[in-house]
Design a binder for these strands. Structure first.
Lengths: 342, 342
DNA sequence: TTGAAAGCGCTAACAT
DNA sequence: ATGTTAGCGCTTTCAA
């Protein structure tokens, strides 16, 4: 029923080989024949089956994109960038949501293999032991974005998380805080461990003690941020400032603070990763570490395209810089002054 | 190089037909043989080529999802729901971002066809003349989500936009506003035209005049919302309340209001579509029309699955209800009281 | 410059 | 219950 290359060949009065040559822009076709074939294609509304072509040439025009949370606007912006680059290069993207779940990650990686995509972009849920190894073994190019995979040889594009966290926490310290809570992703994901590292370094650099009780980790989701912030705020010796590892954790923390009827930054100051549209519009505007998220996705996608072209090129790790945006949520807290009244 | 069905057959000492039977869970295979085949599959780490299978059975385990703005959290939530349903049913989703651009929409629809997806979910950029017609002609099931296509026979899942807008605007009227501006998507998309309809109906129902100068439309993006809100606020006889057709337009309006140093709701009240996490956290909390967005995507995806099963089932249009969430941004404006002082 | 024909990996009809 | 074989739609030798 659907029109195939044979139908076109018949109508144009040539062999399918010739049609194929026209289709793939091969030389050695008389312009006049080429013309006739193209007309036949038009007339029949023919679209070559990518499936058949893929089977033949053993590669598809698909790339896989496995992100860990589609509801996180940070990843969404990443998707946007990848989509743009892929489209430009004539690729479509299969999007999968691993949901921070290593089993789903594996499931999708196997799918990518079965689907024979040309390459895969992934924000791995774990620093080590990612099933992405299967892809590499099968010769499928992989690029890690936003997060690293320490035990795999892949191109990597991420942000200088340590420095970003260091700046944010140093800023809070500069505002007079000495007890700063941290709400982070688990250590098994690089954004968790590296931002923790930046947090710790900042404390140490300013001669402050590192209190493990002030560091909480969990899946980067709003509900988790809410819970973890609550735990910190309800501590007997509670922190006067909170540093949140990403936008969803911040959203949750915001909620926890609001629920307790506390004010920012008077009762508790706040700093977080990710500069989303709403960050500047909330009350008070949120101090954030801005990530060049579009560039992150773009760079990663471009690297993947290059590796698809040339599998033997040297691997590289690109580290983009963040930018601290100071707003009111981190201003010098009144509680410092209050200490005089004790 | 990659292991094929033949390799498995050889190792298991059977024919490829038998391996295929095991693969597709067909009957008529001795348990003992089935066992042996499965072991061979394990041993070789074999994954059947979906490409080859697709070519053979003339359908893929892929569905296409064409949304109009990946950066809009509303659509993102939709993606999430679709992904969940698809995965459950053993499908992967190819995600495409039409960017509210009919040409990109067409491009992706042609891609879907070439990729031979089993079905397509789409949030069409136009009410009529969508290239989705090509898919239907090729026998590919299509379901419209969030927006309608008036000239195509497809299953449709959307929200009662007229009622949602009606409630929001009626609420603003109830708060004492008589000049209410509207910032909406263009009329060619149903969410634009239907929400406009609800706005107009609300004004008329309360005996208020409909002033075309107070209705502005544009692409649903933050920058556009900013500009359109600015135009309305700078009017000689400016509105005392703004109704925004979606979350991005609201974000822009918020910005415009803030830039002018005005307060909400004292200087201008605000109501909008979409209840995102930040809506309750901004200053002041935003009154919104909440859409059951996950259910929207879920229902649409389920409908698509059903139609893939049975192309001849009757078409249906599902209309989900919205819910008005009244918060402070729409409270009775002080400016009403101020009129006494004029 | 063009065509004939093989074959990519799989499924399914048919044979045994 | 299992194997043999044709063929899905395309690309790509190879020959003409």
């Amino acid at each position: 029923m659907p029109v195939t290359i044979k139908d076109v060949a018949r109508l144009a009065g040539v062999s399918n080989a010739t049609v194929s040559r026209v289709l793939t822009d091969k030389p050695h076709v008389r312009p006049e024949i080429r013309q006739r074939v193209q007309e036949a294609i038009q007339a029949l509304g023919y679209r070559p089956s990518r499936v058949a072509r893929s089977l033949r040439v053993k590669r598809t025009r698909l790339i896989g994109l496995i992100i860990s949370d589609i509801q996180n606007p940070f990843f969404t912006a990443l998707v946007r960038a990848v989509e743009d680059v892929a489209q430009q290069a004539g690729y479509a993207v299969i999007l999968c949501n691993s949901d921070e779940d290593i089993h789903k990650e594996r499931l999708y990686i196997e799918l990518m293999q079965a689907e024979q995509v040309s390459g895969v972009l992934i924000t791995p849920t774990r620093e080590t032991g990612s099933p992405a190894r299967l892809l590499l073994e099968a010769g499928v190019p992989v690029v890690a974005v936003d997060r690293q995979m320490r035990d795999l040889q892949v191109d990597t594009v991420l942000v200088d998380n340590v420095e970003g966290a260091f700046q944010a926490v140093s800023h809070l310290i500069g505002a007079g805080h000495t007890r700063i809570g941290a709400i982070l992703a688990p250590r098994v994901v690089t954004t968790g461990s590296q931002r923790r590292e930046g947090y710790v370094q900042a404390l140490k650099a300013h001669g402050l003690p590192v209190d493990p009780a002030l560091i909480r980790t969990g899946q980067p989701r709003k509900a988790v941020g809410d819970r973890l912030a609550g735990e910190l705020l309800d501590l007997p010796e509670r922190p006067t400032a909170l540093f949140c590892g990403n936008n969803l954790l911040a959203l949750g923390a915001l909620n926890a603070i609001r629920e307790r009827g506390w004010r920012i930054p008077e009762d508790v100051a706040l700093g977080a990763f990710d500069n989303l549209d709403w960050a500047a519009l909330i009350d008070p505007p949120l101090t954030v570490v801005e990530q060049p998220v579009y560039e992150l996705g773009q760079t990663a996608a471009e690297l993947l395209m290059k590796r698809i072209q040339d599998a033997s090129r040297p691997f590289q790790k690109v580290e983009l810089k963040t930018r601290l945006r100071v707003r009111q949520s981190s201003q010098r807290p009144l509680s410092i002054d209050r200490e005089d009244r004790r």
